[in-house]
């Protein structure tokens, strides 16, 4: 039998990886409301191999729902840095995308991907569970094709992210 190349090993690892994703959801805002129907029998995300998880060390996906302000961003960065590679970030709702309805607030940071690399955004206020499931499916495709490389970008551009973080957190 021929020996497998590194490419092939990676693609098999990615294929297996996308079938078993554990999610830690950081719910700072109203978006948490859409997750119980997503998790439970109505939409049942476990049929895709996704499960909610409670600790950052064992989780693969960091789902950030709702607005982030200076205070919560500090905690999000801690959680993100606790997670092990490979890790993926999904920004949920328009607040993580561009500030949403809190665009003029004195505390809300407007773009998540300036501080930690986001692999995917779900636009909308609020995104329905269908949109959440569709985002997970899309993330699986990205993982399968090796395009979900946020954790690699974070290491590569650490200076850029740290500088942005320092600017708002001091």
């Amino acid at each position: 039998m021929e020996k497998m190349t590194e490419e092939q090993v990676k693609s098999i690892a990615n294929m297996l990886r996308k079938r078993s994703l554990w999610m830690i959801h950081y719910c700072t805002g109203c978006g948490a409301m859409e997750l119980p129907p997503t998790m439970t029998s109505r939409y049942d995300m476990e049929r895709f191999g996704l499960a909610p998880y409670v600790t950052s060390r064992q989780a693969d996906i960091l789902l950030i729902t709702g607005y982030l302000n200076v205070k919560t961003l500090r905690r999000v960065i801690t959680v993100y840095e606790q997670m092990l590679d490979p890790k993926y970030v999904i920004g949920f709702g328009s607040c993580t995308l561009n500030g949403g309805v809190y665009w003029d607030s004195y505390a809300v940071i407007k773009q998540l991907d300036r501080y930690i690399p986001a692999d995917l955004y779900i636009a909308g206020c609020m995104p329905r569970p269908e949109a959440v499931i569709s985002a997970f499916r899309h993330l699986m495709e990205l993982i399968d094709s090796g395009k979900a490389d946020g954790y690699k970008r974070y290491k590569r551009n650490l200076a850029y992210y740290k500088e942005n973080q320092r600017k708002v957190l001091g």
């Binding site: 003029d104 809300v108 773009q111 708002v168």
Partner: peptide, 29 residues
Amino acid sequence: FILENWKDLPPMRKDFDSVKYSSEHFVFR
């Protein structure tokens, strides 16, 4: 108490310009 590293006017005062502060500190997309 709630705010971190706050150096501006207290934010709930009416003469505090929230839009100006927000656009100075956080980047618009």
